[in-house]
Amino acid sequence: MFEIKKHKILSPGISLYEVYAPRVANTAEPGQFVIVRIHEKGERIPLTICDYNREAGTVSIVVQAVGRSTFQMVKLEKGDNFLDFAGPLGQPSELIEESDEELKNKKILFIGGGVGAAPVYPQIKWLSDKGIKADMILGARSKEQLILKEDIKKTTNNLWLCTNDGSKGETGFVTDVMRRLKQSNEMNYDLIVVIGPMIMMKSVSELSLEYGIKTIASLNTLMVDGTGMCGACRVTVGNETKFTCVDGPEFNAHLVDFNEAMRRQMIFKTEEGKDLLKTQKETEEHNCSCQQA
């Protein structure tokens, strides 16, 4: 059992949990993920690590309610437990292999979309701890979903916000901000790291290819075990099949077959959708009886 030490609601349906998992905290690196389960009958859910504290033995994750299991998960509160919390899994971000010197000479742009801001955070924080401040574009549907912007602001140099509905920052997609930067000759980066919905990573990747900027994307494929045993997470990268859980989750975005990746994400979608409705209905019914009691 892994106890929740802190719980913060970042926005409706998006929660941050700081979980006591000393073994994971001890070896976690930026770019890696964990697999969690909340109860005996629950799915194994992969979540990218958002922060870790080796001294306190805690690891933070951010969860957005999208399917049956994540809907159940965001109901957890401080003092509750995760039944399983396994990790860190996957390859650490390539950045941590580089020397401080190399990193200082590199202009890096991070792009986070929606809850994708969470897995970007440990990378910019890691750099910031070394005195390197990168730039970032943070995008979301609307201002409520622009999560962690205070923490990110502290650890970045330039932070550009954008929302689809214009409720905060620039109006439009992260790619619109990229285009504006390009026009004003500010798109002079050596590396882009993008994390967010598959469709957004695809658009960013297409644009950055046009601009000739190396781009890393962190893929959120379906997974079961997360240890290389099932192949549910396979993706095509540069015409080769890779397992996201052991070869990734970060890959050279320009080589990723995003169309295939998006299609494979949908394999259980119809069933998942049905399940979600079931859970919502159960919750409504549950609320009723609770109010009576």
């Binding site: 079961v224 192949g231 549910a232 095509t236 295939e260 299609r263 949908m266 394999i267």
Partner: peptide, 16 residues
């Protein structure tokens, strides 16, 4: 065609 939707490893089906 091995990465089409609906192609699974036996391990995936059995693990599920």
């Amino acid at each position: 065609g091995e990465n089409l939707n609906g192609v699974f490893s036996a391990n995936e089906v059995l693990t599920r």
